[in-house]
Design a protein around this nucleic acid. Sequence first.
DNA 1: CATGAATGAGCTTTCATTCAT
DNA 2: AATGAATGAAAGCTCATTCAT
Lengths: 201, 201, 201, 201
Amino acid sequence: MEGKQSFIAEARREQIIKAAIEVLGEVGYVHASLSQIAKKAKISTALISYHFTGKEDLMNNTLVYLTELEWSYISDKVGLKPTPSEKLAAFIEVSLDYQAAHRLNNLALIEIVFNARTPDHVPYYKLEDDVEEDLTSNLLQEILLHGQEAKEFGDFNPQVASTVIKGAISESILSSHKKMDSMKYNQELAEMIMKMVRREG
Amino acid sequence: MEGKQSFIAEARREQIIKAAIEVLGEVGYVHASLSQIAKKAKISTALISYHFTGKEDLMNNTLVYLTELEWSYISDKVGLKPTPSEKLAAFIEVSLDYQAAHRLNNLALIEIVFNARTPDHVPYYKLEDDVEEDLTSNLLQEILLHGQEAKEFGDFNPQVASTVIKGAISESILSSHKKMDSMKYNQELAEMIMKMVRREG
Amino acid sequence: MEGKQSFIAEARREQIIKAAIEVLGEVGYVHASLSQIAKKAKISTALISYHFTGKEDLMNNTLVYLTELEWSYISDKVGLKPTPSEKLAAFIEVSLDYQAAHRLNNLALIEIVFNARTPDHVPYYKLEDDVEEDLTSNLLQEILLHGQEAKEFGDFNPQVASTVIKGAISESILSSHKKMDSMKYNQELAEMIMKMVRREG
Amino acid sequence: MEGKQSFIAEARREQIIKAAIEVLGEVGYVHASLSQIAKKAKISTALISYHFTGKEDLMNNTLVYLTELEWSYISDKVGLKPTPSEKLAAFIEVSLDYQAAHRLNNLALIEIVFNARTPDHVPYYKLEDDVEEDLTSNLLQEILLHGQEAKEFGDFNPQVASTVIKGAISESILSSHKKMDSMKYNQELAEMIMKMVRREG
DNA sequence: CATGAATGAGCTTTCATTCAT
DNA sequence: AATGAATGAAAGCTCATTCAT
């Protein structure tokens, strides 16, 4: 009995979250009102308030949903590669792939991260790294460290390198490099990064 | 007569824009209402509507104001350097410096870029590069091209490299690398980028 | 079977009413929502709607519950006294005692009487005396009448006197005469009332 | 200029307050929504929020308005009488008169006092006497004290007596003693109170 | 008997904007 | 050039109630 009820509730929550993602992608955070989301999900506004404590709660849950989705996508494929170099290359490729394949998810995530704030007005993009839950970021740093230990990578500061790589990926997504063939772009990007971390000879 | 009026008007516009920047930094785009901005500027809300056609117009003007400020800061200092390598190093250093020195400006700019949308809901961060007004981005690409022509830099795709560098700088600003000494961080970052663009062999 | 169900139902109703009393005392009528009451009773909101036709019905039943409680407390003790004078003194004393001992009940009762309204918006405090069910009031008037018949009391109008006494007791409860010792206060009050009704000469 | 603007604003505030009083009297505190009040005043809801910080602020201002009205009505007429006995008689008479003449005001006042709460849920009727601003109450106590000093009144505790008198008046208002001629009622009441405070012997 | 799910109506509040002055 | 007054629209949220299970 309880299992079934939980199941219904969980389905509803996911339905609402998905509607939220769509609306965020379409009209942005500012205009992503609960009523817009409710309309998209074809339910009443009150039902959102029933399943989430409020708009903030919904956004937080949506953020977690999106983050986990991305994480599982990336970590799965990266895990298959044996060496740090291959892991890194995979990390870059898969990250870009994910964005290309799930543009909407990515838009919504950006909207939340850059718009949501805690009740005392601290923006999420300032919070993100305090929370040592940024699994993707941790994975990247680990890869870099292992690469250095294995003497595959040079003697850079891993924190700095990780920032560069993360930034490169983010920026690539935003400015969707319209004029270039996407596959070629990805390949070029990977090469540049690899050149940067490669051990100098 | 008209000159004087324009002058007053211009002063008011700047006063309002500066108030907008402060409010954006403090509470974020969503809560940066015209009345908050008016309060900060110690004027009436109606006066904002008098000097700007609406909130969107104010935000656009604020964006231009911030962009120009950053541009002049960066282009001045980069222009002094003779070689592409030095220009690039200066570009990175000065970009990071500017952010450190004008955190508030930078916060406000982020808020606008990631929140503002055209009336038909196209977000600014998707627009940015269409507008061939992104002078900073152009400058960076020029430096890279000249570096390649001068055989200082390797044979990478300049568009990709530019994206990596821009992303690295943006990301550095956001995750204000709390645990590291800022000067050391900047130096490390510059070195990594230089290694990436440097001609091999 | 039916007996058992009734018994369960009756227990539930009382449980709900008691929860209502608590919530009324804590947050007042306006914020005493069914969900608050349900939470306090650790049941679902729907269950309240099952046992009572609606909020109004619950409040009415709570009112009756509280009134009967007070009535039985007072009438019992007053009944033991032989003479009208003693009955009156007991009435005053016991009324004040009851309030002191059951502050919560009293708070809830006030909240209902001064907030609840019939569907056509007639407030309960205007209704109260129409309903010839105000047993307490009747008891008081009877005592006064008997006292006059027995020549213990003077020649006042019993309705007026009853109003004064009721008002004095109510007011005493509300303004809980913080600065005075409660026992001394009660004694003083009783004396003043007795002086008022006493036969002159 | 400023005087004129203040004047307009003040007129609006009073208009709103008067509308609030009417609505409170008609449908009670619970249903006295801002939109009901706005409708009664034939203005928009937002305008109420423009002139008052919120519903609570409006209710507080209405309370002050009503209290001051009653106070000036009573204090004026009581002040004309020379002796404590006459002052007390006048106090009772005038209090009852005021209620009869301004039933609506009185209803509204009751609604506010018994329904409004501070943000942390402390009801106003528990607050009232802490505030040593209850001018009416103070006046009554002064009369009683002077009467005792002048040997016109007996040796009762003035705080207790004041409570009795206040309660008697309040109760008289609530239970509008339907079956009795109002003038006769008032006279009877005054007599009973006078008998209570009169010096014995 | 009891509940979770769901809704429509209503609430207060804030917002961008307009207008007379 | 500047403001106070005023508004309509929309926001997030809570409520009492209903219904299938």
